[in-house]
């Protein structure tokens, strides 16, 4: 790891964002908070894609995968938040521990 910014720097940055997102997913009981953690994780994956595309010589493949990830993240956010709103209308809460009608 030399002084200039290299591939390792981006990988470590992506790793830190991933761990923060994972911590968010694990500790939140608010469903919207969990979705925000998922967005952080997806962003860290995208940083990895673009870093490998830039430093690995594959110019467009990594960027196209990043665009697909962004597209799927948008679909996931739309469906996830719609489900959250539907749960809120039925339960008056979005605490993921409180919605346990189906637990045995």
């Amino acid at each position: 790891m030399s002084g200039a910014v290299g591939l390792d720097h981006y990988l470590v940055l992506s790793l830190i964002i991933f761990t923060l997102g994972m911590f968010t997913v694990l500790t939140r009981r608010n469903a919207i908070g969990i979705l925000m953690g998922v967005e952080l994780i997806l962003n860290s994956a995208n940083i990895n894609y673009l870093a490998f595309a830039y430093y690995g010589g594959a110019r467009y493949d990594g960027q196209i995968f990043a665009i697909f990830v962004i597209m799927l993240a948008a679909a996931e956010a739309v469906i996830g938040l719609a489900v959250v709103l539907a749960i809120y209308q039925n339960f008056r809460t979005i605490d993921v521990g409180a919605t346990e009608n189906l637990s045995g």
């Binding site: 981006y10 940055l13 964002i17 967005e39 962003n43 995208n46 940083i47 673009l50 870093a51 595309a53 830039y54 960027q63 990043a66 665009i67 962004i70 597209m71 993240a73 948008a74």
Partner: peptide, 21 residues
């Protein structure tokens, strides 16, 4: 993250990130 993308020479992905996210 948008800034990081621009630093990685991915201008189009950065703009998509800005618009979509």
């Amino acid at each position: 993250v948008v800034g990081i993308y621009i630093l990685l020479a991915a201008d189009f992905v950065a703009m998509v990130q800005l618009l979509v996210y």
